Simulated scan of single mutants.
Amino acid sequence: GARKRARRVREAAWGNGPVDDTGTALQADFTRPEAYPQVNDTPDPFDQPSPDLAWLCHPALTGLPPHEWDTLITTLTTLHDAQRETHLDQRRGRRPRVKGDGTTGRRPVLTLADRLLATLLHYRLGLPQVVIARLFTVTPETINRRLKDIRQLLQNAEHTIQPTEPQLTTLDDLYDFARTAEITLPAEIKSAS
């Protein structure tokens, strides 16, 4: 009855492609569809800010001249890699890691540099986490977790963030501060305000 027909349909589908309700194989075109055009799927370098956030690296916002920024990012990258390996080692139950080509795993939403920028905006300029989340187009929970991670790395690196005046509360405050410091804003921000 129904079970035999279901089995025939299943077997036909496995072996011959599409089938009708009786299990008879249908003619099928087995050519592959055209591949979707690929947008640049090369991940952003983890030690560089995402392209749309690069304007936030300005020393007026970070409080760090370019050479100090580079030094801090290098230090944090080393500490992050060690921290990540320790965490993965604990998750694996101390089993040896199978080394791959380094291209597996989900791409992080925020690079390490993005995370540092978010931390500096929050602790140096006082920008609230919900505002930073909107700027970085992530959830406030993501920003909260990343601030915690970076704060721990900064403590390990013995780097302190000194708050500055003015303390900012909105994106408009940040944009005004950036314009005052003569920072070139991305085009979509210029037209939005």
Score class of each variant (00 low, 15 high):
Pro140Asp: 12
Val138Ala: 00
Arg97Cys: 05
Arg94Cys: 08
Pro66Ser: 05
Ile150Trp: 00
Arg92Lys: 15
Asp149His: 05
Thr103Leu: 12
Asp172Trp: 13
Arg115Thr: 01
Phe177Gln: 06
Gln38Tyr: 15
Glu68Gln: 03
Tyr123Asp: 07
Thr170Trp: 12
Asp149Val: 09
His80Val: 00
Pro108Arg: 10
Asn156Gly: 05
Ile132Lys: 06
Thr103Phe: 09
Arg134Asp: 14
Pro108Cys: 05
Trp14Pro: 05
Gly102Asn: 06
Ile73Ser: 02
Arg92Met: 06
Asp47Lys: 06
Asp89Val: 11
Ser193Gln: 07
Asp149Met: 04
Pro128Asn: 07
Gly15Met: 11
Asp21Pro: 08
Thr103Pro: 01
Gly100Val: 06
His159Met: 09
Thr71Asn: 05
Thr111Glu: 04
Arg5Phe: 03
Gln129Ile: 04
Asp41Lys: 07
Leu61Lys: 03
Pro37Val: 11
Cys57Trp: 11
Glu158Trp: 13
Thr24Met: 10
Trp55Pro: 01
Gly126Trp: 02
Leu125Glu: 02
Ser50Arg: 04
Pro49Thr: 02
Gln90Glu: 11
Ala12Phe: 01
Gly100Cys: 13
Thr111Ile: 08
Ala25Gln: 15
Arg5Asp: 03
Arg91Tyr: 09
Thr104Val: 10
Leu61Trp: 08
Thr180Gln: 08
Ala133Leu: 02
Pro33Val: 02
